[in-house]
């Protein structure tokens, strides 16, 4: 049974299709990074999963239960942080948690425990409205964690934070993701932001899921060459020769990027280059970094 599963999830705002047949699979105990540029459909997906948007097409199951049919049972087992912090500015951190402690009917000792966990136990009578953005976001995470959920849904938890706020929240998330039995679904538009935290990743672009798999599978893509990098002392001459052989070479940072070629073909080209007195000092597979893979995926 998956922690969260969407089947053919489709959503329209008026005539615009913002989600198109999204099949997300989040296995239990995983840390799933949901990645995509702004406006790709991440928040819409998460709002549908948490019942904040009315379903149009497709299905959502959380721990085997259908949303919105079992809305209340599902909401008992998930903690959420959707977009910006949701805090009552005129109440203290403890009072904010007290509201949710009553609604989730969890032990009142959880308030102190959770405040200590997010480092806000000593904020006393300070109102949430006077907190820094980082503190507000940590308090929002505390609200999501208060009732010990099985699935934590965090939508862009570092969005809008200054560098120190980002570090605060990132450190907190590192601690959380090590927690046994907790499944975390975290969205971001920055791969670098979550790549060290997550075990699985889904990449969404223009409402379509363009990649879904483990981080290892994504790293496999990274290891796969996406062409050959050729370094010569005469790039223009080399490009001309390659063109004669029907191979398109693209200049990049003083080198030429060639499509993947069979070894024999590459050996033949090298011989020809040397025969024309073009010095070859580098031939290597061109590797992608993760950001490049992300960009390639969303641009395909």
């Amino acid at each position: 049974m998956n922690a969260l599963e969407t089947s053919a999830l489709t959503y329209r705002y008026g005539p615009d299709k913002v989600l198109d047949n999204v099949n997300l699979v989040v296995s239990p105990g995983t840390i799933y990074g949901f990645l995509g540029p702004n406006g790709a459909g991440k928040t819409t997906t998460l709002k549908l999963a948490t019942g904040l948007l009315r379903m149009q097409e497709g299905a959502i199951h959380i721990f085997g239960q259908s949303m919105p049919v079992h809305r209340i049972e599902i909401l008992r087992s998930i903690g959420t942080l959707i977009e910006s912090p949701s805090l009552y500015a005129h109440l203290t951190a403890r009072e904010n948690l007290l509201l949710y402690q009553k609604l989730y009917r969890c032990p009142s000792a959880r308030i102190t425990e959770t405040l200590e966990r997010v480092g806000l136990a000593r904020t006393g009578s300070k109102k949430a409205g006077q907190f820094s953005l980082g503190m507000k976001q940590r308090l929002s995470i505390a609200i999501a964690l208060l009732h010990s959920p099985r699935l934590l849904i965090l939508d862009e938890p570092t969005n809008g934070l200054d560098p120190s706020g980002i570090i605060e929240v990132r450190e907190l998330l590192k601690q959380l993701t090590g927690q046994e039995g907790l499944t975390v679904l975290i969205s971001s538009h920055l791969l670098a932001e979550i790549e060290r935290l997550v075990t699985h990743i889904g990449i969404i672009h223009k409402g379509r899921l363009v990649f879904q798999g483990t981080m290892d599978e994504l790293h496999m893509k990274q290891r796969h060459s996406s062409g050959l990098l050729l370094g010569t002392d005469n790039p223009e001459g080399a490009r001309h020769l390659l063109s004669e052989c029907g191979i398109e070479a693209v200049p990049e940072n003083g080198h030429l990027v060639l499509p993947d070629l069979p070894s024999e073909k590459m050996a033949e080209i090298t011989r020809q280059l040397v025969a024309r007195d073009i010095g070859v000092y580098r031939i290597e597979p061109k590797k992608n970094d993760l950001e490049q893979i992300f960009i390639n995926l969303v641009n395909d």
């Binding site: 709002k47 948490t50 019942g51 904040l52 209340i72 049972e73 909401l75 008992r76 998930i78 959420t80 959707i82 977009e83 910006s84 912090p85 949701s86 805090l87 009552y88 500015a89 949710y100 609604l103 989730y104 929002s140 609200i143």
Partner: peptide
């Protein structure tokens, strides 16, 4: 003002 509808609407009630 506090953007709290979304949090309130994800409470199990």
């Amino acid at each position: 003002r506090n953007s709290t509808w979304k949090q309130l609407h994800t409470t199990p009630q």
